[in-house]
Design a protein around this nucleic acid. Sequence first.
DNA 1: CTTGATTGTCTAGCGATGCTAGGATCGGAG
DNA 2: CTCCGATCCTAGCATCGCTAGACAATCAAG
Lengths: 192, 192
Amino acid sequence: MPVQERKQRERAERERLIVATARELAEQQGWDAVTTRRLAERIEYSQPVLYSHFRGKREIIGAVALQGATEMAAAVRAATAAVDGPRARVYALARAYLDFAERNPAVYDAIFQLDGGLAYAQEETPEPLKDAFAALLECLGEVVEDDVAPGLFTEVFWASLHGVATLTRSGRLPPEDTEPRVELLVDRLAMV
Amino acid sequence: MPVQERKQRERAERERLIVATARELAEQQGWDAVTTRRLAERIEYSQPVLYSHFRGKREIIGAVALQGATEMAAAVRAATAAVDGPRARVYALARAYLDFAERNPAVYDAIFQLDGGLAYAQEETPEPLKDAFAALLECLGEVVEDDVAPGLFTEVFWASLHGVATLTRSGRLPPEDTEPRVELLVDRLAMV
DNA sequence: CTTGATTGTCTAGCGATGCTAGGATCGGAG
DNA sequence: CTCCGATCCTAGCATCGCTAGACAATCAAG
């Protein structure tokens, strides 16, 4: 009975469309503009269809976050893989992280600021989130001394980048000096 | 004609009441629960009265932010004043900052996360915000080498604390290890 | 003391929001 | 051909931020 399979395929396809459209709309006009009505209109279905895929707006944000986390992990790995030397890799990581945040502000918010109903820092944390953290740890583990736990070091480094990213984007830090900030951060935190 | 003065006093008093009530409600149930209706009900006036004091909800958040920034500056100065040694002062500052964020999450959000319509990092930035930054700078300027600008250093240190504070409170960092994170941060960033 | 205007406050309502109930419509199975 | 179940939509609920316009209280002038 391949008819059911086709329906399942179409359903999965529509779900991807919802997530992609929500993401697009959020990047264009911010998450506040992502209303269930507008979203439904853009995918050319009625509102209740959204609720047959997701429990609510939160879960849609969560879906965008998972997609974004996967991309961010890939971006970080790509940026660090091409670089020689642990310290230089950390620089590349920091720049790639902030670059991702700047280029995909809505996705970054979905992952790190908004409530997408996801579990963080737990066993049941979704794989993409774990993997994004792992991508950071792979690189940062190389520049941590023996007496410091790599996980702890990664958390601190990540938090610092997160602070720079969010404060800059909300206008609380002047954007011009991002580069020297990153240099200072890497110089001090990464002690080979 | 002291009757007008009395009215002005009463008006100012009511404005304080609005800000205090908004803050209280936000700390109790989160900023989402601070609706104009609920707020009006609590101060025992009708909704439009709020709009005779503030342009809208944003400005109310902004007012809470300014009040909070003043308190935070005082908290930081009080925590650092009682400590001997520049490095120990930096520890005290970091703990005081994170403590303030944990004890006043809604106020912290008003200052550093939400949009209160305030200008940051500019000339027309309100005095309380400038002063809060100044409070950090006073302490951190003591542990910065000559070849690093104190302002830049303060920004980076602040951003790192902000990252730890926000990621912890949103459940993205496990709260148990905050203490070692702060130690690592201070050890690395503050190089006497 | 009585006007008239100004100031202050409230009731009621607008256009949105997230979300849901209940009816219509369409397809495959007997 | 008829039924039944899945699928989708219209319509609506409660709530949101915000505002217009009516009403009442207060004050200066006659």
